[in-house]
Amino acid sequence: MNPFDLIALIFTDYTIRTVMMGALVLGIVSGTLSAFAVLRKQSLLGDTMSHAALPGVIIAFLITGERAPLPLLVGAMLAGLLGTLFMGVVTSQTRIKHDSAQGVVLAVFFGFGMALLSWVVRQPGAEYAGLDQFLFGQAAATVEADVRTMAVIGGAALLVIALFWKEIKLVSFDPGYAHTLGMRVSLMNIAITSLIGVAVVVGLQMVGVVLMSAMIVAPGAAARQWTNRLGMMVVISAVFGAVAGVSGAWVSAAGVNVPTGPVIVLSATLIVVFSIFFAPNRGLVWESVRQQRRRAALANRRAHAEVPVGSVGSAEGATKS
C-alpha cells in the first residue's frame, strides 16, 4: 500500500481512523505531561510508572475477566502509583538514594508483572490470549471505546493542568518558595506525579509498558530546544508527541509487521535528535557556528592588537543595566 492510499484510508477506513485518533490523543496527552516531567527532572518517573503498571493491568484483567479499557487503565494507574509510593517510602526511610530506589521498584514490579503475564497467557480460554500486547503495544487492536476512554481521562488531565497552570509552574520552578506562599507542595507533587501516571496509562495499550517511558521523556526534551517560554514548550511538546504517536500508528495500521511501540519511540527519537542539532539558539549546529564566529572575531582583534593581553573587561561592565 502506498502512503497516499493510506492517507485516503484515514477518512474512509473505520479502523485506521480509530487508530489515528487514539494515537493523536495519546501523543497530545503524553507530550503535554512530558514537558513538565522533563522540567521537574522526573523523566525517569515515567519509566518506573509504566513498568510498574504491568502487574496492575493483569490483576485488573483477572478480577474483571474482560478486556474493558477502563478497569485495565485503573489497574495500571493504581499499580503505577503504588510503585511511586514504594519509591518514596524507600527513599525517605532508608539511606538508599532516589535512583536506586527507582531501579528497585521498576525491576520488582515489572518482574512480578512478567511472571503473572506468562502464567495468565497459558491459561485455557481465548480471552486470555493477547494480553501480552501490553508489553509493546498494538495500535491496530484499538477500538472506539478505547479511544473514548483515553480521550476522557487524558482530557481531564489536560484540564487540570490548564486550571492550575500557575501553581504547577511555581511548584516546578521553586518548591521552597511555593511552600512559603502557602501551597501544599507535597500534595501538589503527588498530584503532578498522578497526572504523569495518567499520561502513561493512556498510552499503555498502543505503545506498551516497556516503551511508554520514551513518550514521557522525548517530546519534552525535544520541545525544550525550541523555545524559552513554558506555554510554548508545552504546546510544542504536545505536537511532537502527536506526530510521534500518529506516525507510529500509521506504520502499524499499514500492516507492516512491527509492533507500534518501537515505531512510535523511533519516531520520537528522530524528533529529539533533530532538535538537539538544529533547533535555533540551543541547537548544537548553531552553537558551533556561533563559537567559530566568536573565535574568528577574537583572532581578528588580536591580530590588530586592539586588546592588550591581560586586560579583561570588569565583571561590573558586563552586568551594567
Binding site: K169, Y177, N228
Partner: peptide, 30 residues
C-alpha cells in the same frame, strides 16, 4: 504568611527553566 516574604538562595533553583524575569517576579503575587 501573607506578611512574610522569602528570598531563597539563588542556587536553590534551576535557572534554565523556560520563562522570563517578569514571570518570576509575578510569582510574588501568587
Amino acid at each position: 504568611r501573607h506578611r512574610v516574604a522569602y528570598v531563597p538562595q539563588r542556587g536553590s533553583v534551576d535557572w534554565d527553566f523556560p520563562t522570563n524575569a517578569l514571570d518570576i517576579v509575578m510569582m510574588g503575587r501568587y
